[in-house]
Design a binder for these strands. Sequence first.
DNA 1: GCGATTGTTCGGTTTCGGCCGAAGTGATGG
DNA 2: CCATCACTTCGGCCGAAACCGAACAATCGC
Lengths: 230, 230
Amino acid sequence: MTQNHPSIAEVASLVGNPARANILTALLDGQALTAGELAYVAQVSPQTASGHLGKLAQARLLTVAKQGRHCYYRLASPLIGRMLEGIMAVAADGPPRYRPAWRGDEALKELRTCYDHLAGRLAVALADALAARRHILLTADGGIVTAEGTDFLARFGLDMERVGQGKRAFCRPCLDWSERRPHLAGAIGAALAHRCFETGWVARLPDTRALSLSPAGRAGFAEVFGLHPD
Amino acid sequence: MTQNHPSIAEVASLVGNPARANILTALLDGQALTAGELAYVAQVSPQTASGHLGKLAQARLLTVAKQGRHCYYRLASPLIGRMLEGIMAVAADGPPRYRPAWRGDEALKELRTCYDHLAGRLAVALADALAARRHILLTADGGIVTAEGTDFLARFGLDMERVGQGKRAFCRPCLDWSERRPHLAGAIGAALAHRCFETGWVARLPDTRALSLSPAGRAGFAEVFGLHPD
DNA sequence: GCGATTGTTCGGTTTCGGCCGAAGTGATGG
DNA sequence: CCATCACTTCGGCCGAAACCGAACAATCGC
Protein backbone atom coordinates (compact mmCIF):
# COMPACT_ATOMS: atom_id res chain seq x y z
CA MET A 1 0.00 0.00 0.00
CA THR A 2 1.81 3.03 -1.27
CA GLN A 3 -0.78 5.64 -0.62
CA ASN A 4 1.31 8.76 -0.23
CA HIS A 5 -0.51 11.92 0.63
CA PRO A 6 2.15 14.49 -0.09
CA SER A 7 -0.35 17.28 -0.25
CA ILE A 8 -1.54 16.71 3.30
CA ALA A 9 1.95 17.11 4.63
CA GLU A 10 2.54 20.12 2.42
CA VAL A 11 -0.56 21.91 3.63
CA ALA A 12 0.10 21.04 7.24
CA SER A 13 3.72 22.11 7.09
CA LEU A 14 2.60 25.46 5.77
CA VAL A 15 0.55 25.91 8.91
CA GLY A 16 3.30 24.36 10.97
CA ASN A 17 5.40 27.48 11.21
CA PRO A 18 4.80 29.97 14.01
CA ALA A 19 4.88 33.01 11.76
CA ARG A 20 2.54 31.51 9.20
CA ALA A 21 0.26 30.16 11.92
CA ASN A 22 -0.01 33.64 13.38
CA ILE A 23 -0.79 35.05 9.96
CA LEU A 24 -3.52 32.52 9.34
CA THR A 25 -5.13 32.93 12.74
CA ALA A 26 -5.08 36.68 12.33
CA LEU A 27 -7.07 36.24 9.15
CA LEU A 28 -9.45 33.80 10.77
CA ASP A 29 -12.19 36.37 11.13
CA GLY A 30 -12.48 36.68 7.37
CA GLN A 31 -11.14 40.21 7.18
CA ALA A 32 -8.39 41.14 4.75
CA LEU A 33 -5.14 42.49 6.16
CA THR A 34 -2.15 44.09 4.49
CA ALA A 35 1.25 42.48 4.26
CA GLY A 36 2.62 44.93 6.79
CA GLU A 37 -0.06 44.25 9.35
CA LEU A 38 0.49 40.55 8.93
CA ALA A 39 4.23 40.95 9.36
CA TYR A 40 3.49 42.71 12.62
CA VAL A 41 1.15 40.06 14.01
CA ALA A 42 3.54 37.35 12.87
CA GLN A 43 6.37 39.15 14.68
CA VAL A 44 8.77 38.85 11.78
CA SER A 45 10.37 41.34 9.42
CA PRO A 46 8.39 42.46 6.37
CA GLN A 47 10.65 40.59 4.01
CA THR A 48 10.28 37.37 5.95
CA ALA A 49 6.52 37.81 6.04
CA SER A 50 6.52 38.45 2.32
CA GLY A 51 8.13 35.09 1.75
CA HIS A 52 5.57 33.37 3.94
CA LEU A 53 2.69 35.15 2.25
CA GLY A 54 4.01 34.16 -1.15
CA LYS A 55 4.07 30.51 -0.15
CA LEU A 56 0.62 30.65 1.37
CA ALA A 57 -0.79 32.34 -1.71
CA GLN A 58 0.90 29.90 -4.06
CA ALA A 59 -0.59 27.02 -2.15
CA ARG A 60 -3.99 28.71 -2.45
CA LEU A 61 -4.47 29.08 1.26
CA LEU A 62 -4.62 32.84 0.83
CA THR A 63 -5.77 35.13 -1.92
CA VAL A 64 -4.20 38.48 -2.53
CA ALA A 65 -5.77 41.69 -3.80
CA LYS A 66 -3.58 44.58 -4.75
CA GLN A 67 -4.99 47.98 -3.97
CA GLY A 68 -2.65 50.83 -4.61
CA ARG A 69 0.55 50.15 -2.79
CA HIS A 70 -1.15 47.83 -0.34
CA CYS A 71 -1.56 44.11 -0.70
CA TYR A 72 -4.59 42.73 1.06
CA TYR A 73 -4.45 39.08 1.99
CA ARG A 74 -7.39 36.99 3.10
CA LEU A 75 -8.21 33.32 3.56
CA ALA A 76 -8.89 31.74 0.19
CA SER A 77 -12.04 29.94 1.32
CA PRO A 78 -14.13 29.01 4.34
CA LEU A 79 -12.55 25.60 4.00
CA ILE A 80 -9.28 27.07 5.26
CA GLY A 81 -11.02 28.49 8.31
CA ARG A 82 -12.64 25.15 8.95
CA MET A 83 -9.25 23.46 8.81
CA LEU A 84 -7.73 25.95 11.24
CA GLU A 85 -10.60 25.48 13.65
CA GLY A 86 -9.91 21.75 13.57
CA ILE A 87 -6.23 22.23 14.30
CA MET A 88 -6.96 24.71 17.08
CA ALA A 89 -9.36 22.29 18.67
CA VAL A 90 -6.65 19.65 18.78
CA ALA A 91 -4.04 22.12 19.96
CA ALA A 92 -6.29 23.28 22.79
CA ASP A 93 -6.73 19.67 23.73
CA GLY A 94 -3.04 18.99 23.81
CA PRO A 95 -0.50 18.62 26.57
CA PRO A 96 -0.90 21.37 29.15
CA ARG A 97 2.76 22.32 29.04
CA TYR A 98 2.24 24.08 25.74
CA ARG A 99 -0.17 26.61 27.16
CA PRO A 100 0.66 27.08 30.85
CA ALA A 101 0.34 30.85 30.77
CA TRP A 102 -2.16 32.35 28.41
CA ARG A 103 -0.41 35.41 27.08
CA GLY A 104 -3.30 36.74 25.05
CA ASP A 105 -5.76 39.41 25.83
CA GLU A 106 -8.38 38.70 28.44
CA ALA A 107 -10.88 40.46 26.20
CA LEU A 108 -10.13 37.87 23.56
CA LYS A 109 -11.25 35.12 25.90
CA GLU A 110 -14.45 36.96 26.66
CA LEU A 111 -15.73 37.68 23.17
CA ARG A 112 -14.17 37.56 19.73
CA THR A 113 -14.89 36.59 16.17
CA CYS A 114 -14.20 33.13 14.80
CA TYR A 115 -14.24 33.45 11.04
CA ASP A 116 -17.83 34.63 10.63
CA HIS A 117 -19.40 33.91 14.00
CA LEU A 118 -18.94 34.71 17.67
CA ALA A 119 -16.54 32.91 19.99
CA GLY A 120 -15.30 33.22 23.53
CA ARG A 121 -16.89 32.86 26.95
CA LEU A 122 -19.98 34.80 26.01
CA ALA A 123 -20.51 32.87 22.78
CA VAL A 124 -20.25 29.56 24.58
CA ALA A 125 -22.73 30.79 27.17
CA LEU A 126 -25.01 31.89 24.36
CA ALA A 127 -24.93 28.43 22.81
CA ASP A 128 -25.57 26.93 26.23
CA ALA A 129 -28.52 29.20 26.82
CA LEU A 130 -30.09 28.38 23.48
CA ALA A 131 -29.53 24.69 24.09
CA ALA A 132 -30.96 24.87 27.60
CA ARG A 133 -34.16 26.41 26.28
CA ARG A 134 -34.35 23.76 23.58
CA HIS A 135 -34.08 26.35 20.87
CA ILE A 136 -31.23 24.40 19.41
CA LEU A 137 -29.90 20.91 19.88
CA LEU A 138 -26.17 20.35 19.64
CA THR A 139 -23.96 17.30 19.49
CA ALA A 140 -20.32 16.94 18.61
CA ASP A 141 -21.21 16.30 15.01
CA GLY A 142 -23.94 18.74 14.22
CA GLY A 143 -27.02 20.48 15.43
CA ILE A 144 -30.52 21.47 14.53
CA VAL A 145 -32.77 24.38 15.27
CA THR A 146 -36.13 23.46 16.74
CA ALA A 147 -39.40 25.00 15.63
CA GLU A 148 -39.48 27.14 18.78
CA GLY A 149 -35.89 28.13 18.12
CA THR A 150 -36.74 29.24 14.63
CA ASP A 151 -39.54 31.44 15.98
CA PHE A 152 -37.32 32.81 18.71
CA LEU A 153 -34.45 33.68 16.40
CA ALA A 154 -36.82 35.20 13.87
CA ARG A 155 -38.17 37.47 16.59
CA PHE A 156 -34.59 38.41 17.43
CA GLY A 157 -34.26 39.70 13.89
CA LEU A 158 -32.74 36.83 11.92
CA ASP A 159 -34.13 36.26 8.48
CA MET A 160 -34.72 32.58 9.01
CA GLU A 161 -36.00 32.09 5.48
CA ARG A 162 -32.75 33.22 3.99
CA VAL A 163 -30.54 31.57 6.57
CA GLY A 164 -32.01 28.17 5.94
CA GLN A 165 -32.33 28.59 2.20
CA GLY A 166 -35.86 27.34 2.21
CA LYS A 167 -37.25 26.75 5.61
CA ARG A 168 -34.43 24.85 7.23
CA ALA A 169 -31.72 26.37 9.33
CA PHE A 170 -28.53 24.49 9.80
CA CYS A 171 -26.21 24.98 12.66
CA ARG A 172 -22.92 23.49 13.55
CA PRO A 173 -20.85 23.36 16.72
CA CYS A 174 -17.36 24.81 16.67
CA LEU A 175 -15.02 23.95 19.50
CA ASP A 176 -13.98 27.10 21.31
CA TRP A 177 -10.23 27.00 21.92
CA SER A 178 -10.32 29.19 24.99
CA GLU A 179 -13.36 27.66 26.64
CA ARG A 180 -12.88 24.18 25.16
CA ARG A 181 -16.61 23.84 24.77
CA PRO A 182 -18.63 24.29 21.61
CA HIS A 183 -20.09 27.55 20.43
CA LEU A 184 -22.44 28.20 17.56
CA ALA A 185 -21.13 28.20 13.98
CA GLY A 186 -22.62 27.55 10.59
CA ALA A 187 -25.29 29.61 8.91
CA ILE A 188 -27.04 30.25 12.21
CA GLY A 189 -23.87 31.30 13.96
CA ALA A 190 -23.01 33.68 11.16
CA ALA A 191 -26.47 35.18 11.04
CA LEU A 192 -26.55 35.61 14.79
CA ALA A 193 -23.19 37.36 14.78
CA HIS A 194 -24.28 39.56 11.91
CA ARG A 195 -27.38 40.57 13.78
CA CYS A 196 -25.33 41.41 16.88
CA PHE A 197 -23.15 43.74 14.81
CA GLU A 198 -26.22 45.20 13.12
CA THR A 199 -27.90 46.09 16.38
CA GLY A 200 -24.72 47.62 17.72
CA TRP A 201 -24.54 45.15 20.60
CA VAL A 202 -21.00 44.28 19.69
CA ALA A 203 -18.38 46.03 17.57
CA ARG A 204 -14.98 45.20 16.21
CA LEU A 205 -11.89 46.62 17.87
CA PRO A 206 -8.87 47.68 15.85
CA ASP A 207 -5.88 45.35 15.66
CA THR A 208 -7.53 42.45 17.42
CA ARG A 209 -10.15 39.84 16.97
CA ALA A 210 -11.62 40.75 20.33
CA LEU A 211 -14.99 42.48 20.30
CA SER A 212 -16.37 45.25 22.45
CA LEU A 213 -19.73 44.88 24.11
CA SER A 214 -21.86 48.02 24.18
CA PRO A 215 -24.12 48.89 27.13
CA ALA A 216 -27.06 48.06 24.91
CA GLY A 217 -25.46 44.74 24.13
CA ARG A 218 -24.87 44.01 27.80
CA ALA A 219 -28.50 44.75 28.58
CA GLY A 220 -29.68 42.91 25.51
CA PHE A 221 -27.80 39.70 26.17
CA ALA A 222 -29.17 39.72 29.71
CA GLU A 223 -32.72 40.38 28.65
CA VAL A 224 -33.01 38.26 25.54
CA PHE A 225 -30.74 35.35 26.42
CA GLY A 226 -30.40 35.61 30.17
CA LEU A 227 -26.65 36.14 29.95
CA HIS A 228 -24.60 38.28 32.29
CA PRO A 229 -21.19 39.05 30.80
CA ASP A 230 -18.22 39.20 33.16
CA MET B 1 -1.94 42.27 19.61
CA THR B 2 0.55 39.64 20.64
CA GLN B 3 -1.60 36.64 20.37
CA ASN B 4 0.85 33.82 19.72
CA HIS B 5 -0.60 30.42 19.12
CA PRO B 6 2.48 28.27 19.44
CA SER B 7 0.47 25.15 19.90
CA ILE B 8 -1.25 25.50 16.54
CA ALA B 9 2.04 25.60 14.73
CA GLU B 10 3.34 22.72 16.82
CA VAL B 11 0.40 20.51 16.03
CA ALA B 12 0.42 21.42 12.37
CA SER B 13 4.13 20.87 12.02
CA LEU B 14 3.69 17.41 13.45
CA VAL B 15 1.31 16.64 10.62
CA GLY B 16 3.52 18.54 8.20
CA ASN B 17 5.99 15.76 7.64
CA PRO B 18 5.38 13.15 4.92
CA ALA B 19 6.21 10.19 7.12
CA ARG B 20 4.02 11.37 9.99
CA ALA B 21 1.23 12.35 7.61
CA ASN B 22 1.28 8.84 6.19
CA ILE B 23 1.20 7.38 9.68
CA LEU B 24 -1.77 9.50 10.68
CA THR B 25 -3.76 8.82 7.53
CA ALA B 26 -3.08 5.12 7.90
CA LEU B 27 -4.67 5.31 11.36
CA LEU B 28 -7.57 7.36 10.10
CA ASP B 29 -9.95 4.44 10.08
CA GLY B 30 -9.68 4.10 13.83
CA GLN B 31 -7.79 0.84 13.81
CA ALA B 32 -4.66 0.33 15.85
CA LEU B 33 -1.46 -0.56 14.02
CA THR B 34 1.92 -1.68 15.27
CA ALA B 35 5.06 0.41 15.03
CA GLY B 36 6.42 -1.86 12.35
CA GLU B 37 3.35 -1.62 10.19
CA LEU B 38 3.40 2.13 10.51
CA ALA B 39 7.07 2.26 9.57
CA TYR B 40 6.16 0.35 6.44
CA VAL B 41 3.30 2.62 5.38
CA ALA B 42 5.40 5.67 6.17
CA GLN B 43 8.19 4.24 4.03
CA VAL B 44 10.88 4.91 6.59
CA SER B 45 13.10 2.74 8.72
CA PRO B 46 11.73 1.40 12.01
CA GLN B 47 14.00 3.64 14.05
CA THR B 48 12.91 6.72 12.16
CA ALA B 49 9.28 5.75 12.56
CA SER B 50 9.87 5.20 16.25
CA GLY B 51 11.04 8.75 16.59
CA HIS B 52 7.97 10.05 14.80
CA LEU B 53 5.66 7.89 16.86
CA GLY B 54 7.28 9.11 20.03
CA LYS B 55 6.66 12.71 19.07
CA LEU B 56 3.10 12.06 18.04
CA ALA B 57 2.39 10.23 21.27
CA GLN B 58 4.02 12.91 23.39
CA ALA B 59 1.86 15.52 21.71
CA ARG B 60 -1.16 13.33 22.47
CA LEU B 61 -2.11 12.87 18.87
CA LEU B 62 -1.63 9.14 19.29
CA THR B 63 -2.04 6.73 22.14
CA VAL B 64 0.07 3.67 22.52
CA ALA B 65 -0.81 0.29 23.98
CA LYS B 66 1.92 -2.23 24.63
CA GLN B 67 0.95 -5.82 24.06
CA GLY B 68 3.79 -8.23 24.40
CA ARG B 69 6.55 -7.09 22.15
CA HIS B 70 4.19 -5.15 19.94
CA CYS B 71 3.25 -1.52 20.32
CA TYR B 72 -0.15 -0.64 19.03
CA TYR B 73 -0.71 2.96 18.08
CA ARG B 74 -4.04 4.59 17.38
CA LEU B 75 -5.44 8.09 17.08
CA ALA B 76 -5.88 9.61 20.50
CA SER B 77 -9.39 10.92 19.84
CA PRO B 78 -11.97 11.50 17.14
CA LEU B 79 -10.87 15.14 17.28
CA ILE B 80 -7.64 14.13 15.59
CA GLY B 81 -9.54 12.44 12.78
CA ARG B 82 -11.70 15.51 12.40
CA MET B 83 -8.62 17.67 12.08
CA LEU B 84 -7.09 15.41 9.46
CA GLU B 85 -10.31 15.45 7.47
CA GLY B 86 -10.15 19.24 7.48
CA ILE B 87 -6.56 19.27 6.26
CA MET B 88 -7.32 16.68 3.59
CA ALA B 89 -10.23 18.73 2.36
CA VAL B 90 -7.97 21.72 1.90
CA ALA B 91 -5.22 19.64 0.34
CA ALA B 92 -7.66 18.14 -2.16
CA ASP B 93 -8.73 21.65 -3.00
CA GLY B 94 -5.21 22.86 -3.55
CA PRO B 95 -3.22 23.65 -6.67
CA PRO B 96 -3.60 20.88 -9.22
CA ARG B 97 0.10 20.41 -9.63
CA TYR B 98 0.27 18.61 -6.32
CA ARG B 99 -1.96 15.80 -7.48
CA PRO B 100 -1.63 15.50 -11.24
CA ALA B 101 -1.26 11.73 -11.17
CA TRP B 102 -3.13 9.88 -8.54
CA ARG B 103 -0.72 7.19 -7.46
CA GLY B 104 -3.02 5.39 -5.09
CA ASP B 105 -5.18 2.40 -5.57
CA GLU B 106 -8.21 2.72 -7.78
CA ALA B 107 -10.07 0.61 -5.24
CA LEU B 108 -9.35 3.30 -2.68
CA LYS B 109 -11.18 5.84 -4.78
CA GLU B 110 -14.14 3.54 -5.14
CA LEU B 111 -14.81 2.64 -1.53
CA ARG B 112 -12.83 2.99 1.67
CA THR B 113 -13.20 3.84 5.32
CA CYS B 114 -12.85 7.36 6.65
CA TYR B 115 -12.36 7.06 10.39
CA ASP B 116 -15.63 5.34 11.25
CA HIS B 117 -17.73 5.81 8.13
CA LEU B 118 -17.65 5.08 4.40
CA ALA B 119 -15.89 7.23 1.82
CA GLY B 120 -15.11 7.10 -1.87
CA ARG B 121 -17.19 7.23 -5.02
CA LEU B 122 -19.80 4.84 -3.71
CA ALA B 123 -20.15 6.68 -0.41
CA VAL B 124 -20.65 9.99 -2.16
CA ALA B 125 -23.23 8.40 -4.42
CA LEU B 126 -24.92 6.97 -1.34
CA ALA B 127 -25.15 10.40 0.24
CA ASP B 128 -26.46 11.81 -3.02
CA ALA B 129 -29.10 9.10 -3.26
CA LEU B 130 -30.29 9.68 0.29
CA ALA B 131 -30.39 13.41 -0.30
CA ALA B 132 -32.24 13.02 -3.61
CA ARG B 133 -34.96 11.02 -1.90
CA ARG B 134 -35.18 13.62 0.85
CA HIS B 135 -34.15 11.09 3.45
CA ILE B 136 -31.44 13.45 4.55
CA LEU B 137 -30.72 17.10 3.97
CA LEU B 138 -27.11 18.19 3.71
CA THR B 139 -25.37 21.53 3.59
CA ALA B 140 -21.72 22.42 3.95
CA ASP B 141 -22.22 22.95 7.67
CA GLY B 142 -24.43 20.14 8.79
CA GLY B 143 -27.34 17.94 8.01
CA ILE B 144 -30.50 16.45 9.35
CA VAL B 145 -32.40 13.23 8.87
CA THR B 146 -36.03 13.64 7.89
CA ALA B 147 -38.84 11.63 9.39
CA GLU B 148 -39.04 9.51 6.24
CA GLY B 149 -35.30 9.08 6.37
CA THR B 150 -35.49 7.83 9.93
CA ASP B 151 -38.06 5.24 8.92
CA PHE B 152 -36.06 4.21 5.88
CA LEU B 153 -32.81 3.79 7.78
CA ALA B 154 -34.57 1.93 10.57
CA ARG B 155 -35.94 -0.52 8.00
CA PHE B 156 -32.40 -0.91 6.68
CA GLY B 157 -31.39 -2.14 10.11
CA LEU B 158 -30.07 0.93 11.90
CA ASP B 159 -31.02 1.30 15.53
CA MET B 160 -32.24 4.85 15.15
CA GLU B 161 -33.09 5.12 18.84
CA ARG B 162 -29.51 4.53 19.84
CA VAL B 163 -27.97 6.50 17.03
CA GLY B 164 -29.88 9.62 17.86
CA GLN B 165 -29.70 9.22 21.63
CA GLY B 166 -33.34 9.96 22.01
CA LYS B 167 -35.23 10.29 18.82
CA ARG B 168 -32.92 12.61 16.92
CA ALA B 169 -30.31 11.45 14.51
CA PHE B 170 -27.49 13.75 13.68
CA CYS B 171 -25.53 13.62 10.54
CA ARG B 172 -22.64 15.60 9.25
CA PRO B 173 -21.07 16.03 5.83
CA CYS B 174 -17.42 15.11 5.39
CA LEU B 175 -15.64 16.30 2.29
CA ASP B 176 -14.41 13.34 0.29
CA TRP B 177 -10.83 13.99 -0.81
CA SER B 178 -11.03 11.82 -3.90
CA GLU B 179 -14.46 12.90 -5.07
CA ARG B 180 -14.32 16.40 -3.61
CA ARG B 181 -17.96 16.18 -2.73
CA PRO B 182 -19.44 15.43 0.68
CA HIS B 183 -20.21 11.99 1.97
CA LEU B 184 -22.03 11.00 5.11
CA ALA B 185 -20.27 11.22 8.47
CA GLY B 186 -21.36 11.66 12.06
CA ALA B 187 -23.43 9.21 14.03
CA ILE B 188 -25.52 8.31 10.99
CA GLY B 189 -22.48 7.74 8.81
CA ALA B 190 -20.91 5.52 11.43
CA ALA B 191 -24.08 3.53 11.98
CA LEU B 192 -24.59 3.08 8.27
CA ALA B 193 -21.06 1.85 7.80
CA HIS B 194 -21.39 -0.49 10.74
CA ARG B 195 -24.53 -1.96 9.27
CA CYS B 196 -22.81 -2.47 5.91
CA PHE B 197 -20.08 -4.47 7.62
CA GLU B 198 -22.63 -6.36 9.68
CA THR B 199 -24.60 -7.48 6.64
CA GLY B 200 -21.43 -8.50 4.84
CA TRP B 201 -22.01 -6.05 2.04
CA VAL B 202 -18.54 -4.66 2.48
CA ALA B 203 -15.42 -6.00 4.18
CA ARG B 204 -12.03 -4.68 5.11
CA LEU B 205 -9.02 -5.62 3.01
CA PRO B 206 -5.63 -6.23 4.59
CA ASP B 207 -3.01 -3.49 4.43
CA THR B 208 -5.29 -0.86 2.96
CA ARG B 209 -8.21 1.33 3.84
CA ALA B 210 -9.96 0.24 0.65
CA LEU B 211 -12.98 -1.98 1.12
CA SER B 212 -14.23 -4.92 -0.90
CA LEU B 213 -17.81 -5.07 -2.07
CA SER B 214 -19.44 -8.48 -1.93
CA PRO B 215 -21.91 -9.68 -4.56
CA ALA B 216 -24.62 -9.29 -1.95
CA GLY B 217 -23.43 -5.76 -1.33
CA ARG B 218 -23.46 -4.95 -5.02
CA ALA B 219 -27.02 -6.22 -5.31
CA GLY B 220 -28.03 -4.60 -2.07
CA PHE B 221 -26.76 -1.16 -2.92
CA ALA B 222 -28.57 -1.38 -6.23
CA GLU B 223 -31.81 -2.57 -4.73
CA VAL B 224 -31.98 -0.51 -1.56
CA PHE B 225 -30.30 2.69 -2.69
CA GLY B 226 -30.46 2.48 -6.47
CA LEU B 227 -26.68 2.52 -6.76
CA HIS B 228 -24.71 0.69 -9.41
CA PRO B 229 -21.04 0.47 -8.46
CA ASP B 230 -18.51 0.67 -11.31
C1' DG C 1 9.26 65.00 -10.44
C1' DC C 2 11.01 63.75 -5.31
C1' DG C 3 10.95 61.74 -0.92
C1' DA C 4 8.28 58.65 1.79
C1' DT C 5 5.89 54.45 2.23
C1' DT C 6 4.77 49.67 1.02
C1' DG C 7 6.07 45.51 -0.54
C1' DT C 8 9.12 42.14 -2.90
C1' DT C 9 13.58 39.82 -4.38
C1' DC C 10 18.29 38.38 -3.53
C1' DG C 11 22.29 36.44 -0.83
C1' DG C 12 24.39 34.45 2.87
C1' DT C 13 24.25 32.65 7.50
C1' DT C 14 22.58 29.58 10.85
C1' DT C 15 19.75 26.61 12.99
C1' DC C 16 16.63 22.75 13.07
C1' DG C 17 14.98 18.41 12.04
C1' DG C 18 14.83 14.15 9.32
C1' DC C 19 17.32 10.17 8.33
C1' DC C 20 19.85 5.86 9.04
C1' DG C 21 23.68 2.69 11.10
C1' DA C 22 24.78 0.72 15.28
C1' DA C 23 23.87 -0.60 19.76
C1' DG C 24 20.61 -1.44 23.66
C1' DT C 25 16.14 -3.20 26.03
C1' DG C 26 12.63 -6.39 26.74
C1' DA C 27 9.49 -10.03 25.54
C1' DT C 28 8.89 -14.66 23.17
C1' DG C 29 9.72 -19.37 22.39
C1' DG C 30 11.99 -23.53 21.95
C1' DC D 1 19.11 -19.67 28.61
C1' DC D 2 20.07 -18.41 24.31
C1' DA D 3 18.46 -17.04 19.61
C1' DT D 4 15.03 -14.21 17.67
C1' DC D 5 11.95 -10.60 17.09
C1' DA D 6 9.88 -5.91 17.91
C1' DC D 7 10.96 -1.68 19.21
C1' DT D 8 13.68 2.18 21.10
C1' DT D 9 17.86 5.11 21.97
C1' DC D 10 22.18 7.20 20.56
C1' DG D 11 25.30 9.61 17.45
C1' DG D 12 26.55 11.86 13.46
C1' DC D 13 25.56 13.39 8.80
C1' DC D 14 23.12 16.27 5.69
C1' DG D 15 19.72 19.10 3.41
C1' DA D 16 15.96 22.22 3.78
C1' DA D 17 14.17 26.39 5.31
C1' DA D 18 13.69 30.36 8.35
C1' DC D 19 15.68 34.62 9.11
C1' DC D 20 17.44 39.29 8.25
C1' DG D 21 20.36 43.07 5.82
C1' DA D 22 20.53 45.20 1.66
C1' DA D 23 18.95 46.38 -2.64
C1' DC D 24 15.08 46.84 -5.90
C1' DA D 25 10.20 47.95 -7.69
C1' DA D 26 5.86 50.30 -7.36
C1' DT D 27 2.72 53.73 -5.61
C1' DC D 28 1.17 57.88 -3.25
C1' DG D 29 1.24 62.76 -1.51
C1' DC D 30 2.96 67.14 -2.27
